[in-house]
C-alpha cells in the first residue's frame, strides 16, 4: 500500500470531530459554570455579608470540593469527554486532574504512588504557572517599580 493510500484510509477511519458542536458546548458549559459561580458569589455577599475577595475564595474552595467529589464518585470523566474545554478550563479541571491522579496511582502505595504521582497531570500547570509568574514578576518590578 502506498503512503497516500494509507493516509487516505487513516483519514477515513479517524472519527470526525464536530468542531462547531464542540465549540458551542464548551461555550455554554463554561459560561454556565461562570454564571452559577456568580450566583453563588452574590448569595455569599448578600446573605453571609462576605467581602468580595472572600466570596471568590470560598467559591474557589467550593468548586474544587465539588469537582474532586465528582471525580472520586466517577462522574467527572464522562462529563469531561462530553463538555471538553467547558469543564477542564475552569478550576474544576485542576481539581479533577489532581484527584484523578491520586485515585489512579493509589494502588502503588502512599509514597511511591500518590506521593510521587499526585501532580502528574496538574504538574505542568503548576510548573509553567510558577515560572511565568516569577519571571513576569521580575519584569513587572523592573518596569513598573
Amino acid at each position: 500500500m502506498k503512503r497516500e493510500e494509507y493516509q487516505k484510509l487513516v483519514n477515513e477511519y479517524t472519527p470526525k470531530v464536530n468542531k462547531w458542536k464542540n465549540a458551542v458546548i464548551a461555550f455554554f458549559v463554561g459560561g454556565l459554570i461562570g454564571l452559577l459561580g456568580q450566583i453563588i458569589v452574590t448569595i455569599f455577599q448578600n446573605s453571609f455579608g462576605m467581602e468580595v475577595m472572600a466570596s471568590y475564595s470560598w467559591l474557589c474552595v467550593l468548586v474544587i470540593f465539588l469537582a474532586s467529589l465528582a471525580t472520586a464518585l466517577g462522574f467527572f470523566d464522562n462529563w469531561v469527554s462530553k463538555c471538553r474545554a467547558g469543564l477542564f478550563l475552569p478550576t474544576t479541571g485542576f481539581a479533577h486532574s489532581v484527584t484523578s491522579a491520586a485515585l489512579d496511582y493509589r494502588k502503588d502505595g502512599f509514597i511511591t504512588g500518590i506521593g510521587s504521582s499526585v501532580f502528574k497531570l496538574a504538574g505542568s500547570v503548576i510548573l509553567y504557572g510558577i515560572l511565568s509568574g516569577f519571571f513576569l514578576g521580575v519584569l513587572g518590578v523592573i518596569i513598573y517599580g
Binding site: G37, V41, G93, G129, I130, S132, G140, V141
Partner: peptide, 22 residues
C-alpha cells in the same frame, strides 16, 4: 467585569501567582 466568570478560569491561577509575586 466578569466577576466569578473570570476567577473560575484556570487563567486566574496565573493572575494569582503574578499578583502574589508583586
Amino acid at each position: 467585569f466578569g466577576g466569578a466568570g473570570a476567577t473560575l478560569i484556570i487563567a486566574n491561577f496565573g493572575h494569582m501567582l503574578y499578583q502574589g509575586a508583586i
